[in-house]
Every structure is written in structure tokens, then in C-alpha cells.
Nucleic acid binder design. Structure first.
Lengths: 216, 216, 216, 216
DNA sequence: AATGAATGAGCATTCATTCAT
DNA sequence: CATGAATGAATGCTCATTCAT
């Protein structure tokens, strides 16, 4: 029930476009600095220094500073997010969750682990979303359609079995993701706190399960 | 059951420090632009233009660009947030909520209204939090202490009456605010959507009430 | 054998142009700050603050910042310097110096005292001279003519009496003032050192007297 | 009896730090303009224009405007002044001056030539000294120690031979440099006058020799 | 006369980007 | 491919000066 690691996909992505060793260093430095100080407060010279390359090298492959940002975010937007989402849904259908509880427990833990494993990228993503709401709109639409399509039939089963409240799937997802997001964001941003994923999962699930229990 | 409007408090604050008409325009323009384009992407010339003043005027009172940011955020951090929280708690004790449901409904609606009424300030706040996690840590601590102190006894009543699950107050608050925040943030950031507060309140409350119902 | 004090002349000058109390404070503050930090590094706001007046007041009487500088330097250039020089020469003729030695001793002490009593003004003067050589040229010409005219006959006497070398008067003056100036400038600029005038006078005179003794 | 030319040392210094052609132009332009109009009255745009480079280039190597000033003055303070002083003293000991007169004549001419050859740098130095007396204090201490150490024994010889007054070496140096400085400064500052070094040397020396002759 | 808010030109400095080597 | 010197537009900020009150 393991999903392809984001780092692996990311590395794949890099190899695909045939990135030289120095260019990889540049990308890595950008990732670190954008997450640490924000996009606008990171100069291309900062990146060059941290990557141990010259100023010109920063632009050789990625053309512009924005190109560097896109090189970090695009895989998330157009490739990794959907792919992970797809794999996630596939996993849902392949595995037989004996109950809605085991399902929700898997989902929560999986997404939390994912987010915490990729804090830096997430942080940059959040920063960009806040500045550019269009990203959020796009992403919300993309993901919700994808998830809804894959989850609808599954939810139907659980509703029939009397384990899930008979709400619109989107409403359920919005609620669930609201709880998860509200819980996660502070931990992503305040990266000092490590977060006990198992304990948090327990807490969140106990709450979610009752909130999403069928009404009497 | 009305709470002092933030705009009123803000205006008070401005009058207190005796801000000239032009300086108010400067502050207003900063608010608008910081929220729209982000702090770093707003130049002091942009602010001057929108405020209809000269660039020198921008610096006359607020000294630096950061001073302008603080003039916007400080009232939230040090004055308005706590005051609103205080008033909110007072309101809780003065009013007799006949049930946990009417209580939770008031809270959710009140906080949502507050947030939506001050979208711009919230947006800037969120941006700064993402960049500077220390703000979040401070704020979280300040508010949670304040709220917990005021809410603990109230929760005790509801727990006794069997209307509220017997969890630690902090856990309940974290859950509830997680749902509200997870719901609100997208709407604050994507400010085009107006958001139907009554409908959203209903949705959120229905979910929360079951999630926080005592366990059988 | 006392010469009119510069401060008195300065005060006279101020009263003549009918300067209000605040304007005098402005002038005094300018004097202090120009001497301390230099003309260009002193802002009109600095002056206003030190004088305890508003920004506008600084310009009310003196029109421009340069006007303030001129108000400080002009009395030296066009009034005080020549007047002092005149008085000095008058004093020379009135008093009967029994020897060239008593004459030179008087001159050296008198000029040194004058310079040290007006360090601030001197310092500003020096700064302006360095930046604007024209001032120096003008001043040099003005003073040398004045002094030469008044001193020539006197020198003639001493030369006849065999107490002074038979050089051109200008050459003598240039030498003497060279020694004095070379000795004074460091002390004017490094205003922390108080300088023992009597001892310095002795040293300088002993040296000067032999340097200006008639050749065998 | 030739001392290493300052320009050569300066050029060495530049080559050592590997300054590009444009950067040398920047330095040269700064030298010219600082001397001409003073540090504060020279804008970095002025420098860029005179150097024929862009404004960014001015900051590429020297980082700040002050860095440019230091790049001009530091060689004088920390390198060239002491080195020249050292070479000067070496020269004194190597060469055998048959008399105090030939010695003093060499010194006066040498120092005058040096000063007039480096008028621009000297002028900037003087400006900075006037503004920042600490520089003068430091320099005075550094040089006097250096010179005294090297000159003491030499003076002893001349005193024994009855060619030099029996004063403390420092007093002699202060007097002599006072005359030279008093003579030079006007000529350094009013750079239009070319100054006849040979004639001036004669005048100064004649005066100095008698002033420093042993007392009867 | 005095005030201080307002002005706008000017300044040092930064930084993404280009290009010759 | 990599380098780093050069670029020039943009930026935050200062400051002498004006003017309505």
C-alpha cells in the first residue's frame, strides 16, 4: 500500500530533462531558499552561492528566476499531484478496506505523511497560493474532479453499508480535507515541530468518523 | 449579541494616533495593495499612486515600508485580536446559550463574519505568517491561552449536560478551529467568491456538532 | 591690548539683522552641527531638532540651507576677519613693542587664542575651504593685502633695528603663518586636545625668532 | 636617491587585487570627482558617467560608495604612507648626507614632490581628516613613531656636529613638518597653482635651517 | 511669525538578466 | 557548458524646500 515517493518522481523528472549536476544543485538550492525565505526574498545570487555555481549558471537552463519557481511547482501541479492522486485512488480500489474507518485512517495518514515529507515544496506552494489565488482555484478544481470521480463509487458503498452519512461527496471531501488542512498547515509552516503522525491521525480520525457518521 | 466591529476599532486606532487624511489614504492603499499583490510585490510608488499622494508622503509618517506593514498588522496582533477575543468571551458568559448547538452556531457565524469582513487584513496576515512562522507561534499561544481560559468552564457545563464530548478543551478548540480555518482560508484567499455565510455556517455546524457529540 | 571678542561681534551682527530668539537658536544649532558632522551630513531636520523648532522655521529667515552656511561664514569673510585684522593692526601701531620678539610673541598668542576660541567656526571654514578653494584664494588675497599694508612699515623698523631678516614682507608672513597654521590646524580639528597656549607660544616663537633673525 | 613612485605602488596594488579595466576607470573617476567636488557632493551616477560605465558597475566590485572611498584612502593609510616613510628612512641611512643642510634640502624637496604628485589623493585625505579627526590622530601617531624611530640617531649625529639645535626630535619634526604642511596645504587645495618646487624648497630651507640652528 | 504636512527630485543600492570569453 | 563582469531599470528612502493654516 505504498505510493511512489515524491522525491523519486521529482528525481525522475530531473533526469528526464537531462539536468546537469550543477543544474540539480541550482534547483535544490532554490527549493531550500524559496522555502526558507520566500521567493521574492531570495536573490539569484543567493541561489548561485548556495549551489556553489556562478550567477550565469543559474540562468543557463532555467532561463529566468520564475522558470526556477515553475520547475519546482509544475511537477506538483501538472504531474506529481495528479499522479499521486491517481495512484492513491487506484490503491483505494485495489485494496479492500473492510470498513470506512480503515479507509479514512489510511487516507488521513497517507496525506499527512505526504505533506510532512515534502514540507519545503508545500511551503513554497502555500506561499504562491496566498499570493496568486488562481493557482488555488485551478488546483482545487483539478483535484476535486479527480478525487470525486474516483471516490464517488467508493463512498456509495460505504453509504449503503450505513457507515457514512448520506451527503454529497464533495461536501464530505471538503469537510474532511478542511480538518486535515487546518491541522496540517500550522505544522508545515512552523517546521520546527516534528508532529507525531500516528497520534495526530488517531485524533483527527476519531473526530472525522463521528462527524461523518450517518445521522439517526 | 453584536461584537464591536473591527473597522470601528481600527478607525479608533487611527484617530488616536491622529493620522492626517492623506496618511489614512496611504494606509488604505497599502492595505489594498499588500492584500492584492503581496508585500514584496508592492512598491512604495504603487502605494503613493493609489493613495494619490507623493512618494515622500508615504514615508513621512510611517518611516519605512515595514512600518506601514506593522501599522496594518499590529492592531491585529496586539489590540484588535485580543480585544475581539475578550469581547467574544464576555459575550459567551453574558448571553445564555440554551444549548451547545446555539453556542457553536454563534461562534462559527461570528468568527466567519469577522474573517470575511476583514479579508484584506487576514490575507496580509496569512502571507506574513507563511513567511514568518514566529508570528503564527506567538499568535497561536496568545489566542489559545485567552480562549481556553475563558471557555473551559463553559465547556464543562456542556459536558455535564451531555451535549459535548469529554475531550480536553484544547483538543476541541483545535478541531473546531481546524474545520473553520480549513473552510475559511480558501475563501479568504480567493476573494472573488463572496461565500454564503448562513449556508456555510449550517454545513460546518452540522458536521461539527456530530464530531463533537459525546461518545456512546 | 585686548581685541574685540568675536562672539561679541557675532552677537552684534545678529542683533543688527534683527534675529528672533528662535532664529538665533537655529543659527547656533547649525554652527554646532556643521562643525560636528560637516555641512552635507547635517540635515535641516537635525538643525530643527537641536534648535527645538519646526522644520519650516529653519527656512523662514535664512531661506536656504546654504543661506545658513553663509550666515555663519560671511561674518568671518566679509566682516569679522577684516575687522579683527584691522583692530589687530591698529593695536600694533598703538602699542609700542619694544622689540620684534615682544611683537611676534603678541601676534602668535593673539592669533592662537583667537583660533582656539572659535574652533567651531574655524572648523567649518576649513571644511568649506577644502571643498571650495575659491574661498581660500579670496581670503588669502584679502588678508594678505590688509596685513601687508599695515605691517610693512612696522617690519621696516625692525629690519632697520637689525631684529628681522631682510626678506620681502610677504615671504616673512607666509613663513610665520605657515608655522602657526601648521601648528594650529591639527589642534582645531582634533578638538578633544585642549592645547596649552602659553607653552605652544613659547615653542613657536623660539623657532620663529631664529628663523627670522637677520642673516650674518 | 629616488624613492618608489606612489603611482607605481598604487598600480601594483590595483594589479594585485586584479581590477578589471572598467573597475580601474571607476576608481580613477572616483578619485577625480571626490577630489574635485568632495565625497558627499559626488553621486555614484556622476562616477558612472565619468567612468563611462553603468551605475551597477560602480557597485559590482566596490560594494558601496564608501568602499570606493576606502579603496582610494586605504592604500595611503595602511600601505603606501608607511612604505614610503620606510623607504624614505632607508634612503636616509643609505645615502650619506655631508651636512644637515643637504639632508633637510632632500627631505623638503622629496616630501613636496610627493605631495604635489598626489594632489588628488591628498585633497581627499585632507577632506576626510577634517570630517573625521580620528583619521588624523591615527595617522599622526603612526607616522611620528615611524619617523622618530628612524630619525633619532641621525639627528643625534647632526646635533653632535653642531649643525642642529639640541631639541627633542619630536619637537624638531613637528616644527619642520608644520612649516612644510603650512606651505603645502594651500597649494594642494588650490590645485590651479602649479608651484615652483625648487624655488619653494629654497625658501623653506633657508628659513628652516636658521630656525633649527644650534643656539649660541 | 511659526508650524508641520506635503512634495518630488535625487540618491545609494539591489537584482534579474545578458553576453563575451 | 560554465563563468562572472556588465547592465540598467527599479526600489526604498532622504532631504531641502514650499505652503496652507
Amino acid at each position: 500500500m505504498k505510493h511512489t515517493d515524491v522525491e523519486t518522481l521529482f528525481a525522475d523528472n530531473i533526469k528526464t530533462t537531462d539536468l546537469s549536476e550543477k543544474q540539480q544543485k541550482v534547483l535544490q538550492a532554490s527549493l531550500t531558499l524559496f522555502a526558507q525565505k520566500g521567493y521574492e526574498n531570495t536573490s539569484t545570487l543567493d541561489i548561485a552561492h548556495l549551489a556553489g555555481v556562478s550567477e550565469g549558471t543559474v540562468f543557463k537552463h532555467f532561463k529566468t528566476k520564475d522558470g526556477l519557481l515553475q520547475a519546482i511547482l509544475n511537477p506538483f501541479m501538472h504531474d506529481i499531484f495528479p499522479r499521486v492522486a491517481g495512484e492513491f485512488i487506484d490503491a483505494l480500489h485495489e485494496s479492500i478496506f473492510d470498513s470506512f474507518e480503515s479507509f479514512i485512517r489510511y487516507v488521513v495518514k497517507d496525506r499527512m505523511t505526504y505533506a510532512m515529507d515534502n514540507r519545503q515544496e508545500m511551503k513554497i506552494f502555500i506561499q504562491e497560493m496566498v499570493k496568486n489565488p488562481a493557482i488555488m482555484t485551478t488546483l482545487t478544481n483539478r483535484l476535486s474532479k479527480l478525487i470525486q470521480g474516483g471516490v464517488d463509487t467508493l463512498f456509495h458503498e460505504y453509504k449503503e453499508k450505513g457507515e457514512l452519512v448520506d451527503w454529497d461527496s464533495m461536501r464530505i471531501i471538503r469537510m474532511a480535507s478542511g480538518v486535515i488542512v487546518g491541522y496540517l498547515i500550522p505544522n508545515v509552516i512552523m517546521s520546527e515541530t516534528p508532529l507525531d503522525i500516528d497520534k495526530t491521525t488517531d485524533e483527527v480520525c476519531e473526530f472525522l468518523l463521528d462527524g461523518l457518521k450517518p445521522r439517526d
